[in-house]
Design a protein around this nucleic acid. Structure first.
Lengths: 191, 191
DNA sequence: CGTTGCATGTAAGGTGTTACATGATTAC
DNA sequence: GTAATCATGTAACACCTTACATGCAACG
């Protein structure tokens, strides 16, 4: 089976919903879907992946020439692309989930003397997670109205739950940190 | 402030607990701690990061010469390293969490015709998450017995909750997928 | 006496980012 | 008219991995 990096499959996946899309379109859509559970490739990488996919004949392109000058390059999936994508989605080996959580890393490395400066960062982060959950929900609802987008919609509902759970865990963290700090906050009263 | 990649801070963080450690030690410890909420850098990268840290004088090294031939290079943090690490842990900007979830990506790209082949992968993944949660718990309990390791222990308890939540969300996904499939499973009975 | 663990490191290559270059169109 | 958006792409660089090279020590 064809061995492509996951990002390549992600881009091919976007094209598998049938529309002709430009590199630019693919980037915007990725930001509103893939970004919630996979991550958003940069614009320049998407152009690179499209070249790679085309060299394997999994996608084909045509140049739109609407207004004489303005040029868009539109990509669409080929039958071979659909076939390979199916083989990939059902392949036995699933790569492990990759989590890089810079906030937890900081807490891990924190010392008693500076944990109090980290607490507000945790609260901020929690609010960002709640915002992210709301965004995922919005995108999920939009996706639900489009034919054949039920799996994308489902994964966005998954993402909503993910970010809500993330926010809850940060609340739990704040509580744990408060417990640790409590005895030290008023040492005088412990006499 | 010094601008280093997060991996550099992670390695410096490991050394901030005060022990003299070799590149090899750092790798093993990372696999049992960082890997649960950040990710485990490869052995060769750790050696590279140590060089970088030493060039900034955040760590220093000495060569252990116990048995005449066998050589270990032991690193320890410098006062400058401790200072910079503190600045980093309390710095305002926290990078966004990076999640790459290949299983959800597959479901996102799934078509009705092949979702049934993906279901067993979801179940397998869920079991791996439960296993991971149990490992995190074990490491958290070990860490809790070591002086000054309360924050590492806390982050590992965080990780346990993360992987348990992950398993629960996969159960939820399986249920949602079963609901979708149900009407189609016995079309004859729908007459 | 062979496998696993300990131990360090290099080389090559893949993945992915930022910054840059370029220019048209749309909205205020 | 100027700012934001649309649109494609290159170049340079940073990050990170795999494979390789090397060899001792400990265990069965």
């Amino acid at each position: 089976m064809l061995n492509l990096p996951p990002t390549s499959w992600a881009v091919l996946g976007e094209l598998s919903f049938g529309d002709e899309l430009s590199g630019y379109d693919l980037k915007r859509w990725a930001d509103q879907s893939l970004a919630f559970f996979y991550w958003a490739p940069s614009q320049s990488q998407i152009y690179g992946e499209l070249k790679r996919l085309e060299s394997h004949e999994l996608v084909k392109s045509r140049t739109e020439q609407t207004h004489e000058v303005r040029v868009r390059k539109l990509y669409s999936i080929t039958p071979a692309g659909e076939k390979q994508l199916e083989l990939w989605t059902t392949a036995a080996e699933v790569d492990p989930v990759m989590l890089k959580h810079p906030l937890i890393l900081r807490i891990w490395a924190a010392k008693d003397g500076n944990i109090k400066d980290i607490l507000p960062l945790v609260t901020d982060y929690k609010n960002k997670m709640l915002e992210r959950a709301a965004q995922a929900r919005g995108h999920a609802e939009t996706a639900a109205t489009v034919p054949n987008w039920s799996y994308p919609s489902l994964t966005l509902r998954w993402a909503e739950k993910f970010y809500l759970a993330e926010a809850e865990r940060l609340d739990w963290l704040l509580e744990e940190l408060a417990l640790d700090e409590a005895p030290a906050q008023n040492p005088i009263e412990m006499k």
